[in-house]
């Protein structure tokens, strides 16, 4: 999956989980302060990513991130390299 497609997909999922419009979410949005995610929302995020065919991310890593860019980076790291090529 290309990085820009992956970014769009993650922003779309975060919009659903946070209840914020997707055009208000950017790579530098903060998950807790800006998107107001709580601990149940992090479980939802994990659940939604799996349901959308994204690779499983270790729960500990998911809880240690701050920004939307970190989610994208984390998913990219756990995605096989060849599937990120155009």
């Amino acid at each position: 999956m290309r990085t820009d497609i992956l970014t769009d997909k993650i922003i779309e999922i975060l919009a659903r989980v946070s209840g914020k419009p997707s055009d208000e979410i950017g790579a530098d949005s903060r998950l807790i302060e800006d998107l107001e995610l709580d601990s149940i929302n992090f479980i939802e995020l994990d659940h939604e990513m799996k349901a959308n065919g994204l690779p499983p991310v270790p729960e500990k890593e998911l809880h240690s991130i701050r920004l939307v860019a970190d989610v994208i980076g984390l998913v990219s790291r756990h995605t096989p390299k060849e599937s990120l090529s155009p």
Partner: peptide
């Protein structure tokens, strides 16, 4: 596995 965390609440 389709059940999310919001079912109970």
């Amino acid at each position: 596995k389709g059940m999310g965390p919001n079912s109970v609440p």
